[in-house]
Design a binder for these strands. Sequence first.
RNA 1: GCCCUCGUAGCUCAAUGGAUAGAGCACCGGACUUCUAAUCCGACGGCUGCAGGUUCGAAUCCUGCCGAGGGCGCCA
Length: 586
Amino acid sequence: MFQEEQKQVEQQIYNIFKENSLPLPEDLAWTPVPFSGEWGISTSFFKVAALEAKSEKSLNVPQRAEEIAQLVAENLPPQEYFSRIEAAGGYLNLYFDSRLFSARVVNTVLSTEFFGKGDPKGKTLMVEFSQPNTHKAFHVGHLRSAILGDAVCRILEFAGHDVIRANYYGDIGLHVIKWLWNYQKFHSGETPPADATRWMGDLYAEAIRRLEENPGLESEIRELYGRWDRQEPEIVDLWKQTRQWSVDGFRDLYDVLDIHFDRFYANSEVEIQGKEMVDELIKKGIAEDLRPDDAVIVRLDDLLGLKKEKYRVLVILRSDGTALYSTEELALAKLKFEEYSLDKSIYVVDVRQSLHFQQVWKTLEIAGFSWAENLEHLSYELVNLPGNVVMASREGTVVLLEDLIREAKSRAFEVVEEKNPDLNQKEKKDIARAVGLGAIKFPMLDRENTRIVTFDWETALDFNGQAAPYIQYAHVRANSILKKADGLPAAAIDPVYELDPTEVSLIENISQFPAVIQNAAREYKPLHLTHALYEVARSFNAFYRQAPVLTADPEVRDFRLQLVEASRIVLSTGLNLLGIEAPKVM
RNA sequence: GCCCUCGUAGCUCAAUGGAUAGAGCACCGGACUUCUAAUCCGACGGCUGCAGGUUCGAAUCCUGCCGAGGGCGCCA
């Protein structure tokens, strides 16, 4: 927002450096001055001083940095946008003129079509996220990939990338065969009830139970897998029909979560191509075919001439010739680049599969696919239950998504009824949905990707504190003021009064928003956004308490109204980027 | 055995190598005749697991150790 001014000062500083024959720093690395009630940008001269110290051993770096800062501060020409220049401990701090700064920030937000939106980067990224297995339940453990992936896509898009959202569902594999086996034997002809996904999961759990009780039945599973592999119509038809039940159920869940995809890839879709690629790898001498006694493997460490084990051995086809996850993964990676012209292909998958991806990608690299270097794993830690219990359908240690959503909505509904009993049923339900889903999504985003989320009902349904409802509430308050104000002042307004500290702090947080988006996009970390947004909400709430808008003197009121509108825009944009609704009342 | 994460306030978590390490929860004390108190203000709370190293400067980078979790040939 102040690039021009920053560049200008930068040039002036360079000139001072030249005049004093100081070594030119490569870049000044501007940062905001640690906020203390005044806006400013800051740079330091430690690097330059350290550079000098190399030729002049006796030099005290911090002292010299301070001298340079003093020198620059004294020699900079008078500034329009900076009202105060200060050298402090090796830093040079340039403080903005508060009137010009606040007016610029607020006017920029109001006059930009999408404040914070980055310039088009001309890069196409595919983000694959949410990889549910058909014929299984969809539980809270599956939620993180979906929610994180969705938010990352929204942020990347807003930051200026072209994003293709891919879903990859596992519709074949041993788990599916086990389900089909159980269905054929014990549930033949049944159709799913309204809650299809839960029912699919129940039947899967039942299949596992039966097989554990009677391990001898495993041979029937092998046999059935063989029949599927030979594409026997009876089995294929049943598989297709039952798979659809799951797929439809997943789509319903994605709709509820407001998550959409551009392309659905099925596991089975890439099976044939996967096997073909395995053949090629064997021909090229990259893979070893040890069938029928052993599988088809790639000895990665040997191929790379590594002495210490790193990539180990990747199995790419079972000894009986059926496909593995890795078989399909090889083909899927290729298919993605064939279908789209991608600059990068990102996989949002949990951390347990890190090695797996490294192996597959290294194999593709060895096979000579140039795009293999543009594959990227966005790994995240699991959602566990208290006591670090992993959610697993077969262990029965799961919280079903349907249950969580229902509970969160109903809890939110109770609160709405208590806080705002006059609203009609429809409004209350809409708010309950926004708040309930926000409460579910926020904890999955407001955390370093590499850290485990521990799910417990109490925390998940706690609407207080550092959580989505807090931000939504600030948005509601902003809306409420604007509604009562009956329109905004038509023209841009400069504040002609001394700003309240809460206003200063609010404007500071708003001004950071565009940079935060870029940062979150670059690092694939919605966390940066949740944090910044919380800060905007917090400073807005303080402002709301401290600085009256509607009852203020006209010139104060006009500027504050614009500030409220700017806050509203940032809050709703930010929530939207997290996939969280921003209700107008609650 | 090899590899990957993580270790920060009582608890849950932040902090592009940069200035006095910050929030929420919990606990304690205050604020509703006010634009919605799902809010605000204050107090309490820290040898950033330990020991070295690199650097003008380390919670952050490197090495070792301790602790927790995860991954390592036909599950996905």
